[in-house]
Amino acid sequence: MDRNQIHDKLTAIFRDVLDDDSIVLNDSTTADDVDGWDSLSHVNLLVAVEKRFAIRMSTREVKSMRNVGDFIALISQKLAQ
């Protein structure tokens, strides 16, 4: 799965979990830029990403993510393992 595919799948997950089809993500997007992406829904997003990409992220990896770009990079790295 290349970066674009991961981006598209991640966007679909965000739209589904936050129940908002207008969400557009790019690498610099942070929680402040997306309505409904708060600390509560963040936990939901993590669970959904782990399930749908079938990966496990560590506590530290999760805590060190700064934006969507980091998120995609982390998923990409996990999928490659």
Binding site: S39, V43, L46, S58, T59, V62, K63
Partner: peptide, 9 residues
């Protein structure tokens, strides 16, 4: 344990 560490769930 991870959800506890991240969010005290």
């Amino acid at each position: 344990e991870k959800m506890w560490a991240l969010a005290k769930e």
